[in-house]
């Protein structure tokens, strides 16, 4: 009890912060406003230019244009004289010392040469995997220890199900480098069958199924593990918010049955192929899906 008394005071400071943050960072109500604001600005700008454009006489405009051109030409000539370089408009902004620039250029060239030499040395050594080094140049960090697992999964799904089956593949570093794949809903059933039926590294155990409303789309997340090899993987299937539908994997993992019912109940995702898709938590006559982000709760106090 003493603890419960203490908690509000503990939270008091953070709650105030939370409120201010809610004003600044609450995206859903603001997001739809933005396009309107842009539209308004554009239309008001159009209003301003139209009346101002009308009274201008063509002669005056031509004169102004000519003057502007002359100014630009003068500036370019000045720059050429100072820097010895022909008419670079940036050069006028900062007076550049040619010596220094040459030094910088030389240094950059030397760096590039060193890098090239290093790459050549690595690639040239016998057994050096030049192909894999070429594939992942974007990552400055060391490759994840689970990268081979992800690659293997990816190759497996692409050969067994189809090249287009996997939309995205990444390593979830936050979650102990868990391989994470996004599978297209049309190919999810075939992909699930493949994941389950493979010899050896089969994902025999479906630990958890979650549904997430991302406001732009809905996502069903499957957490798989192999009880034999202890390998883990997260599979995501994205679907739209208007007609959300993801094929049911209940025939593949029986445990998906109630999990899918729960997601259907709370998020409104249909699971074609499910043997008994009914609400499970809410009453049968309930309207709406409570875990949707735009769900309006019955009682505002709650």
């Amino acid at each position: 009890m003493s603890e419960e008394k203490e908690r509000p005071s503990e939270q008091a400071g953070t709650e105030a912060k939370q409120e201010t943050e809610a004003h600044t960072a609450d995206s859903p109500p603001e997001a739809p406003k933005d396009p309107e604001v842009v539209e308004k600005n554009e239309s008001s700008a159009a209003h301003e230019t139209k009346p101002s454009a009308a009274p201008v006489d063509p002669e005056r405009e031509a004169k102004l244009k000519a003057a502007a051109e002359a100014r630009a030409a003068r500036a370019a000539a000045k720059a050429a004289a100072e820097g010895g370089q022909p008419s670079a408009p940036d050069a006028t902004a900062a007076p550049v010392d040619p010596e220094r620039e040459a030094k910088l250029k030389a240094a950059a060239e030397a760096r590039a040469a060193r890098a090239a030499a290093k790459a050549a040395a690595e690639g040239g050594t016998p057994g050096g995997t030049s192909a894999s080094a070429g594939e992942t140049p974007a990552e400055p960090k060391a490759p994840s220890p689970k990268q081979p697992e992800l690659d293997e999964l990816l190759v497996h799904l692409r050969t067994q199900v189809g090249d287009s089956a996997v939309e995205e593949a990444s390593i979830n570093e936050l979650n102990g480098h868990m391989p994470m794949l996004t599978v297209r809903p049309e190919q999810w059933l075939a992909a699930a069958q493949t994941l389950r039926s493979t010899d050896g590294g089969t994902f025999d155990y479906l630990r958890n199924v979650s549904g997430v409303d991302y406001e732009t789309h809905l996502e069903v997340v499957y957490h798989l593990v192999s009880l034999v090899t202890k390998r883990e993987a997260t599979i995501k299937v994205k679907t739209n918010r208007e007609q959300p539908s993801v094929p049911s994997v209940t025939p593949i993992w029986a445990t998906a049955n109630w999990n899918e019912r729960e997601i259907y109940d709370l998020l409104g995702v249909a699971f074609p192929g499910h043997p008994d898709l009914r609400r499970i938590m809410m009453p049968d006559d309930w309207v709406g899906h409570p875990l949707r982000k735009d769900y309006v709760s019955l009682d505002s106090e709650v």
Partner: peptide
């Protein structure tokens, strides 16, 4: 917590309790 997602699970007396 940083943006992203995590699933962890532990052995409760009743089995695997997980948090996503």
């Amino acid at each position: 917590p940083p943006a992203g997602e995590v699933y962890v699970s532990i052995e409760s007396p009743r089995g695997e309790i997980g948090c996503h």
